[in-house]
Amino acid sequence: MIVGGIELTELEQDALTEVVNIGVSRAAAALRKMVGKQVLLSVPAVEIVTRERAATLLGERESDELVAVRQSFAGAFSGRAMLIFPEDNSLDLVRAVTGDELSPEEVVEMEEEALSETGNVILNGCLATMANMLKRPLTMSIPVVFRGGGSDLFNPDPEAGEDGLVLFLYINFTVLERNLRGYIAMMMDMPSLATLKDLLGQFIAEVVGEAPQ
């Protein structure tokens, strides 16, 4: 995989997928404690794409407005992480999180707070696990909820640099027989992705018991 000059070998791609899958599994466990019900999160694919391609991927899958929970992260590699849902899925997620105990009006009132908390649990669970596996700490900002189309979500942050790429994950959610779809996207600049590639190399070397080249 080569995107924007960043090349991942097949082994690095496999390692990245494994690290992300473990992170998402930990996030599912944390969300399960929060909702008190069985939660399954599966990640069919992990890709590194340009911002434009990430917006196109969302546009191809989702025709409606999107809701996203965004948090910045910083450490050995830094960027912005987003948990993204189609808007029509967001209230279903709130109902799952609140145990179907609220009226329709209360669900709407609680939507932003519940989405922030859910995003915080999933993004922190995923990123903290990745950081632990790669042996580099990360700090996370307070979650922010916003709405828009794919191009709005992936507009570059002037502080993040115009050459940023996106680590893009498509996720299937199952909560109490509800099928909710969503996405996790981590926007990083080229130096951060280069660092991530180096850390994946070190992770692989430790797993196979060889010193990195």
Rank of each mutant, 00 (worst) to 15 (best):
residue 187 M to Q: 05
residue 9 T to Y: 02
residue 32 R to D: 09
residue 38 Q to C: 12
residue 134 L to F: 04
residue 140 M to S: 02
residue 198 D to E: 14
residue 47 E to N: 09
residue 35 V to S: 03
residue 128 A to M: 10
residue 151 S to D: 06
residue 31 L to R: 02
residue 119 G to V: 03
residue 89 N to A: 00
residue 187 M to P: 09
residue 17 T to Q: 09
residue 206 E to F: 12
residue 144 V to F: 14
residue 69 V to H: 04
residue 38 Q to S: 15
residue 62 E to R: 09
residue 80 R to Q: 08
residue 118 T to V: 11
residue 208 V to S: 08
residue 182 G to K: 06
residue 57 L to M: 08
residue 203 F to C: 10
residue 195 T to V: 14
residue 203 F to R: 13
residue 194 A to T: 11
residue 26 R to Y: 07
residue 205 A to N: 12
residue 19 V to H: 03
residue 94 V to D: 03
residue 54 A to G: 08
residue 66 L to K: 05
residue 166 V to A: 01
residue 141 S to A: 00
residue 153 L to C: 04
residue 85 F to E: 10
residue 57 L to C: 01
residue 127 L to D: 12
residue 74 A to R: 13
residue 159 E to A: 09
residue 199 L to T: 06
residue 30 A to T: 04
residue 152 D to I: 00
residue 133 M to E: 15
residue 77 F to H: 09
residue 39 V to D: 02
residue 49 V to W: 11
residue 6 I to E: 05
residue 13 Q to D: 13
residue 115 L to F: 12
residue 148 G to E: 03
residue 31 L to N: 03
residue 100 D to I: 15
residue 45 A to G: 10
residue 148 G to Y: 01
residue 181 R to M: 05
residue 182 G to I: 01
residue 150 G to R: 01
residue 134 L to A: 06
residue 199 L to F: 05
residue 117 E to Y: 08
residue 59 G to P: 02
residue 136 R to S: 11
residue 28 A to T: 05
residue 28 A to E: 08
residue 161 G to N: 11
residue 204 I to E: 07
residue 155 N to F: 06
residue 3 V to K: 14
residue 102 L to P: 02
residue 11 L to T: 02
residue 204 I to C: 09
residue 116 S to P: 06
residue 88 D to V: 01
residue 203 F to Y: 15
residue 78 S to V: 01
residue 212 P to A: 12
residue 125 G to K: 02
residue 158 P to I: 06
residue 77 F to S: 11
residue 145 V to T: 10
residue 116 S to Q: 14
residue 161 G to A: 10
residue 126 C to W: 06
residue 148 G to I: 00
residue 45 A to I: 04
residue 179 N to M: 14
residue 104 P to N: 09
residue 18 E to A: 04
residue 7 E to A: 08
residue 32 R to A: 15
residue 186 M to D: 06
residue 150 G to T: 01
